[in-house]
Structure formats: C-alpha cells, structure tokens
Design a protein around this nucleic acid. Structure first.
Length: 313
DNA sequence: CGAAAGACCTGAGTGC
DNA sequence: TGCACTCAGGTCTTTC
C-alpha cells in the first residue's frame, strides 16, 4: 500500500522525466480513474492537453504536477489509493496493461517522447485537474526536491484540507500535539487522520506504535507530552528509514519497471507479523480487527493503559 | 466540531 | 468445477 515513502519514491522517479515536459495527448481508458476530477471546471483531457509540467510535488500521499495552463494556476493531482502506480514508459511500450486507466503522452525537450501510465487494479486511486490556491500558512505547499516556481506556495483545492506530513519542514509539532490532546479516540486513529498528520497508513501506523510500545486504542488525549514527542519522533524515524530503503532498493529504474516491487522490501517489526515473535521481547504478535482492517501489535510490549479514573472493578 | 459507520473496488485465497 | 465468502484498505460522505 503506497504510503508517504512509496509515494515519495514515485515523485522522485517522475520528477526529472516530467519537469519541463509538454503533455501532447491524453488517453482516458477508464473514467473511474477520474472520480476526483470535477467536470464542472472543464474536461480532464482538454485541461491537461497542451500544458507543460512545472514539477512533481507531494504532500502526504497526494502527488501533483503543476501546469502552466492559461486560466489560472492548475495541476494534475494524483492519489494512488491502494494499488495505483504511475509508470514511466517509452512511447512504444505495449498497451496490454490490464489495469491501465490513463495515459499521458509527453514531449520532453531533452528526453524526447515518453509516456506516463496510471495503472490501478483496485481503482481507489485517481487523477484530476484541479485549481491551485494559496496555502493557508503561506509556506511551501509540499515537497518538490530542488525545483521551485510560482506554484511553490499553491496547493490543489482537494489537498488543501490535508495536513502537512511529518517530514515537511513546515509541519507544526505543537499544533499536532494540541489537536491530539483534544481527541478521545485511539492514538492509531489519530495517526491515520490525514487532517491532523498526513502520509501515514496502516503499515507505518503499526510500525510507529510498536516502536514506542503504544497500544493503538490508547486514547490520544491520555498521552503525556513526553509520549507524544516520542511518538512523533518514531513516526519520522520509521518513515525516514522506509524512504531510504525505498530509494536504494528501486533506484531510478523503479518507475520504468514495476511500481509494486520494493514496497515491502524494508524490514517490518509489527505489520504482518501475527504469530511471529516480537523483535523486542519475543512474545508472539497478534492481529486484531480495527476499522475494517487489521492492527498488529505485541500483546506484552503494547498494552492498553487505562487512565486511573476509568480503571474499574 | 468530533466520532463512527458505510460506500467504493478487484483479485487472490479459502471452504464447502 | 463452481459458488459464496473474506481480506487487502485510503478517502469521501453521511449521520448523529
């Protein structure tokens, strides 16, 4: 499942190939890939065709390509959902992809013709052309490597409500701690709430909680400031390590080959380890139902600690 | 505003 | 062989 590190690998792989490229043509093979596109603003193909891409930008799990199109600043916004891939290909790559949804035919001044294929088996991902609006805090909208431009402090409308991710220099730690303190729900739910902190999915939530020995159902408001600091540090550590592994394991070949390989190449301490010994204490890990999905934890290290007042009988 | 539940979607795997 | 079911889960929408 693409979370922040995986999306960043895609962004970094795409950036040198698409920056400065002109979109010569667009093929929409499956309209379900446009579910996030607002047709009242114009037709996706028409808005994208002829535009030149300024960069590849990411916030959390959202990715966007600012366009130089007329009629106000816009971008192609992408979300990979659960199974989406953005694959960089040569123009003659066979079109036999069963799950290819959208193709962008590009002309790059230095690299010539190339193609970006949006491939998505489960169709939870999508592309859209969206307007860019100023960021609420006037800071840089997202991560775009070294690239910069007039789009730098503009964010797609559909990403505006998404919180900054914890690797963003403009992420406000104290704001996050404050909002956390007002949440009675479990701390895992808070980590997955993209409106509070973005980029974390089920895998890295479980990994981060394991790293600081926290139970996911522990009420967020019950954590001391010290625990919150530890947790945020663990989140950054887990995401950062996955990013390094993702970067080294697929290198620049990644987008040319296969977006899925390498997603789980890094070592996991909790996710998917039900029945296996906890790497810290050796106790068999457990898998529990959580919000229509699964949580993985060590029943010994990660125990629920009820607040004193609520500890009954 | 927060919290929780439902909807969306396809393919692999399992049990009968 | 076929059928029903479960699981994978990110985000948006609805309801309270």
């Amino acid at each position: 499942m693409p979370e922040l590190p995986e999306v960043e690998v895609v962004r970094a792989g795409l950036a040198p190939a698409v920056t400065g490229a002109r979109i010569a043509a667009v093929d929409v093979l499956d309209v379900r890939a446009l579910t996030r596109h607002d047709p009242s603003s114009g037709d996706f193909e028409q808005l994208a065709t002829g535009a030149t891409i300024g960069a590849a930008v990411r916030r959390g799990k959202f990715l966007w390509l600012p366009l130089d199109s007329a009629g106000g600043p816009r971008a192609i916004v992408g979300h990979l959902g659960m199974s989406g891939q953005l694959l960089l290909r040569t123009p003659d790559h066979p079109g036999d992809d069963r799950h290819a949804r959208i193709r962008l035919h590009l002309e790059h001044p230095a690299h010539g013709e190339l193609r970006v294929d949006f491939v998505d088996q489960r169709t939870f991902g999508s592309l859209a052309v969206d307007r860019l609006v100023p960021t609420a805090d006037a800071e840089i909208a997202g991560f775009s490597g070294e690239a910069t431009g007039e789009w730098a402090r503009l964010v797609p409308t559909q990403v505006a409500h998404i919180a900054r991710d914890p690797l963003d220099p403009a992420f406000d730690d104290d704001l996050f701690f404050h909002r956390m303190s007002r949440r009675a729900s479990g701390v895992k739910r808070v980590l997955l709430d993209q409106g509070l902190i973005s980029g974390i999915g089920n895998i890295y939530a479980d990994e981060s909680l394991w790293a600081v020995a926290l139970h996911g159902e522990q009420p967020a408001s019950s954590l001391t400031r010290r625990r919150r600091l530890d947790l945020l540090r663990a989140v950054r550590d887990v995401l950062g390590k996955a990013l390094v592994e993702g970067g080294t394991s697929f290198d620049e070949q990644y987008v040319n080959v296969n977006g899925e390989s390498g997603y789980f190449a890094h070592s996991l301490n909790a996710y998917g380890r039900a029945g296996l010994p906890c790497p810290r204490c050796g106790t068999p890990m457990v898998r529990e139902a959580f919000m229509n999905r699964s949580s993985h934890r060590c029943p010994r290290c990660q125990r629920l600690r009820r607040p004193r007042a609520a500890r009954g009988r």
